[in-house]
């Protein structure tokens, strides 16, 4: 299988505190050495709770924020050191869809212009032709081409998300980072957007990095799943294995905590205690040990390495 995207040891730190002269005193390790790859036409679901660094990963891949170190190979070329001109060309091949359907569209621009903007930036087609392309994109994402003249506030949340998707598709990308694309939507509308994303994948062979905190949604859309905790991947494998037999205690805890919409299933109520620690001040050893019901003395001092415990199933835990 050819890999479209190959991320190796990606790191991103942010200054948490700076001194009087702008010298950095403390750093937040938002993304702390993660590696994964995504093949053509596949979806990797990236799961984790707030502050685990999953959104930072998505933005670093698109170089919307500069990674601190690591390699990001897209179609074989490392894009972390691309000069601006080549980066611009790369923008045509990878795109992003955001969570918030309100802040992701400029309220002062018409929907059609929002979708046409990437075409203009890259000087694709003349005005009349552009209109046709945009109309076709509208139809593709399930909007009426006659809605092109409306402003974002005249659309519902789900429709706005469709506009965002149309904008991302306008340059004909191969890869899309979908950062919590349905989290802000109502349940009935969520299904519409998920179906749209999956249809587009089937039609155009797109690859997705699907970032979400919702395990049920991730299970539905992904081929592979990676679970993040405090900047690291703790478990990574194909969807069937991870949902059938999660190995990392955190993945297990996460799954146990998801409320299941079926009152006939009464699960045992053993929920992990405590809060997610701050990424500035992470516990030593395995970052999960203070909340882990199985923690051993070793977990407090020694950092577990993400290693392959079964073919294609990587886990970072001393006990597996």
């Amino acid at each position: 299988m050819t890999m479209l995207l190959d991320v190796t040891d990606l790191r991103k730190t942010f200054p948490a505190r700076t001194g009087l002269f702008g010298n950095v005193i403390d750093r937040v390790h938002a993304v702390d050495g993660i590696s994964f790859s995504i093949a053509e036409g596949r979806t990797l679901g990236l799961v984790g709770e707030s502050g685990c660094g999953k959104s930072t990963v998505g933005r670093a891949i698109l170089r919307l924020i500069e990674p601190s170190s690591g390699a990001i190979r897209f179609q074989g070329n490392d894009i972390t050191k691309l000069p601006p001109a080549e980066l611009r060309a790369l923008r045509r091949r990878m795109q992003i869809v955001f969570q918030d359907p309100y802040s992701s569209l400029n309220p002062r621009k018409r929907a059609g212009d929002i979708v046409a903007e990437p075409l203009m930036v890259h000087g694709i087609a003349k005005a009349a032709e552009r209109r046709e392309i945009v109309a076709a994109l509208f139809a593709k994402v399930g909007l009426q081409p006659r809605q092109m003249g409306l402003f974002p506030h005249q659309f519902s949340g789900g429709q706005r998300q469709r506009i965002s998707i149309a904008r991302a598709l306008s340059l004909g990308p191969r890869f899309i980072v979908a950062d919590e694309p349905v989290s802000a939507l109502d349940v009935s509308v969520q299904a519409q957007v998920i179906n749209l994303l999956m249809d587009l994948q089937a039609q155009e062979g797109l690859s997705y990095l699907f970032i979400s905190h919702n395990l049920a949604v991730v299970e539905h859309v992904s081929h592979d799943v990676a679970v993040m905790y405090l900047g690291r991947i703790v478990e990574h494998t194909d969807k069937a294995s991870i949902f059938a037999r999660p190995l990392h205690p955190y993945t297990q805890a996460l799954m146990a905590a998801v409320p299941v919409p079926d009152p006939s299933i009464r699960r045992d109520k053993k929920h992990v205690m405590g809060d997610v620690p701050s990424p500035i001040n992470r516990p030593p050893g395995c970052h999960f040990h203070p909340r882990c019901p199985l923690a051993q003395p070793r977990c407090r001092t020694e950092e577990p390495v993400l290693r392959e415990v079964q073919p294609g199933h990587r886990v970072a835990c001393h006990l597996v």
Binding site: V187, S188, Q190, A191, I194, L215, A216, V217, E219, H220, F243, M255, V258, V260, P261, D262
Partner: peptide, 8 residues
């Protein structure tokens, strides 16, 4: 029917 669920 529109909620994705585990094991769907």
């Amino acid at each position: 029917a529109s909620v994705p669920r585990f094991g769907g």
